[in-house]
Write a protein that binds this DNA or RNA. Structure first.
Lengths: 192, 192
DNA sequence: ACTTATCCGGGACGCCTGTCCCGCTTAGTT
DNA sequence: AACTAAGCGGGACAGGCGTCCCGGATAAGT
């Protein structure tokens, strides 16, 4: 009947609802980035200036909210991985991406928690972003292995563990850079 | 008056009390080893066949119980460190100790949590075991550095971070060994 | 045997968490 | 302006945690 082409003229999302959802998402980004997945829902609601009920309305569970934040960031990681893969030689692209991942995880605890599986297991939830990330990581890694700059027996789980180790030193920038060097050196084939 | 030489004839600890304390400690060892510092006090009490009040009586706080368990294990680590330092050349002793620490932390989550500071910050509580451990670690590390087998700019916090990374792969024995190799290789001086 | 300080069980308490729900408000449509 | 469904606030609820406390039990000393 109306200008809507759909069969149902269901009322569209209200403007204030959309605004609040955006604000919650915005504050969730900041809060998860600052304190990781362990930050309480009430705290995010308080920062966004809404009630906990409003948060739950837009994101029925805490995991849903965390996923919305983390997957968005991971999509960004995937794009960066593709950029690096396009720009850099296979022999070094992986190392560049590794350093990028560590710095990103240290700056944004949501990324770190998502990668290391702290809080929620995002791997279980099938998502294009997650699988794309896995594919990008595997691609960079295997190409470095074929180029002979990374030992052949490591897998992506090893890489995640190394990242977890590096972000344990996120309190000190120089130490972090040192950890990246140590990890990358260790990944090179032995007696190279 | 009695055979006691002390000034106060305070009643000694009751036999059942000592028995229960030993049982709690025993089960706490097993539980913390299996699941880390996050295991609930109630669970330890249940396993020991006592009530939570009994646990609290002997160990007024959860941190006290965890400390009793963890410090005992750390004393063992210190003895092992001294053994390794006595038996092995400075150039390799550190690496042996590192591998030992990782395997120990993977087998006993209480050790891992104590080392990486998960749960409680045992470093804050001044204890001879903790300071002895720090001294042993620093000694092995600096001697390896003087021998030229470990890069000069790493400190003990870096080592702990690497251990944290290695125990993230404690689900797979082969992967763990691989992680130890990677970490040790990375610790060697560059272009060496 | 009797006394008494020690000890124990089990529940209460307070705190924190994520999730759900009800009554009121408000934006969008007619 | 009126109507209605979407949306909101704030509190209720359930579960889990560490800690504390009281009435009854019991081991140790006399």
């Amino acid at each position: 009947m109306s200008t809507d082409a759909g069969a149902k003229a269901a009322r569209p999302q209200r403007a204030d609802g959309r605004r609040n959802q955006a604000r919650v998402l915005e504050e969730a980004f900041a809060a998860f980035a600052a304190h990781g997945a362990a930050v309480p829902i009430r705290e995010i609601a308080r920062r966004a200036g809404v009630s906990t009920g409003t948060v739950t309305r837009h994101f029925p569970t805490k995991e849903a909210l965390f996923r919305a934040v983390a997957l968005h960031r991971i999509e960004h990681l995937v794009r960066s991985a593709e950029d690096i893969a396009a720009r850099e030689a296979p022999a070094t692209a992986f190392f560049t991406f590794f350093a990028f991942l560590v710095r990103q995880s240290a700056a944004d605890h949501a990324v770190g928690d998502a990668l290391t599986g702290a809080g929620f297991d995002l791997q279980a939830a099938a998502s294009t972003a997650i699988s794309d990330f896995g594919a990008a990581m595997t691609g960079l890694l295997s190409r470095a292995q074929q180029a002979g700059t990374v030992r052949a027996d490591v897998d992506t789980a090893d890489i995640k563990a190394l990242i977890a180790g590096c972000i344990a030193r996120d309190d000190d920038g120089a130490a972090q850079q040192r950890m990246i060097e140590i990890a990358c050196d260790g990944l090179r084939p032995r007696r190279g």
